[in-house]
Nucleic acid binder design. Structure first.
Lengths: 155, 155
DNA sequence: TTGTGATACATGCAAACGCATATATCCTTG
DNA sequence: CAAGGATATATGCGTTTGCATGTATCACAA
């Protein structure tokens, strides 16, 4: 079924394009003085975690290589925005969490960024479409994660 | 209406997450020997253009700063994958186009990559959802581009 | 036409990235 | 419990990125 393959690729291209266009749009907003977009991505992820999380877990949410994240976390820790501690349950692991200052920075940026996101999304989409987009993207991400866990063939 | 803002941000987060997860998934495929994903992005964009395009136009499709794209194009030209020529209609401009070798590389990678994309998309979504995703993402990108062209207020 | 500002691309340089690999810890198996 | 392999993170190093800025061309007005 060649039409199906083509359909899927067109949809992926549309997603990529929307991502690129909106990322550029958001990058142009003048709110990234305290932390870059990538740094904010880490701060935001941590802000949604009730307790410290592993670097490897954090790495699943951030589109960076493991060494790049390790060093990004270095810099954020040196700036006092996050805390690191060895994982008591696993001597190899490192637990990362937001510091007070880090939480404050995340909130300051997040408040303004959320406004921009809402503006961009609601400008072109009605609430039903926004809901559909969320549902579909969640399905997509969940399925891809499940696939990767299974390697390539079944267990 | 605070619910609307929250809805929009959740949807954006879902899109970001789907993007990150799928990008990692695709990056892990063993098809990027001849060109990296970013280089492929440029080759693919050029493959869809019937005639040479400006660097600035290319830069609208690629999530890179202008200098970074300028140098990426340098490297691709040095490898013989793309051609560059001054724009006869504008002495400042540079026109970029795919060379024969570049088109061949794009096709070799594209064939395999398209398979992976189709697999990932159809694994979690039915055709109706894929179509909806495409429609919604196109709307989103179009609206954001239109907004950016108008600066911040209306003309 | 000459000057003034805008646009398109290139370049210098420090920061950040990815790949390969080192190190430390964990987990299994014999 | 010792050995071998797997996992989590860190580090060396060459490459690539972004920011600031430089250079060339264009557009328009005086």
């Amino acid at each position: 079924m060649p039409g199906r393959r083509h359909l899927a690729n067109d949809a992926w291209e549309a997603l990529l394009s929307a991502h690129a266009v909106l990322m550029k749009h958001f990058a142009a907003e003048d709110i990234w003085a305290e932390a870059s977009m990538r740094e904010y991505d880490v701060l935001y992820t941590l802000s949604r975690c009730p307790e410290p999380i592993r670097l490897s877990e954090l790495n699943r949410h951030v589109l960076l290589s493991q060494p790049a994240l390790s060093r990004l976390v270095d810099r954020l820790a040196e700036r006092g925005l996050i805390g690191r501690e060895p994982d008591p349950a696993d001597g190899r692991g490192v637990l990362v969490s937001l510091s007070g200052a880090g939480r404050a920075v995340q909130r300051r940026i997040g408040r303004q960024h959320a406004r921009g996101v809402a503006r961009a999304m609601t400008a072109g989409l009605d609430p039903a479409e926004i809901r559909q987009l969320e549902t579909i993207c969640q399905k997509l991400a969940d399925q891809a994660v499940a696939d990767d866990k299974n390697g390539d063939t079944r267990p």
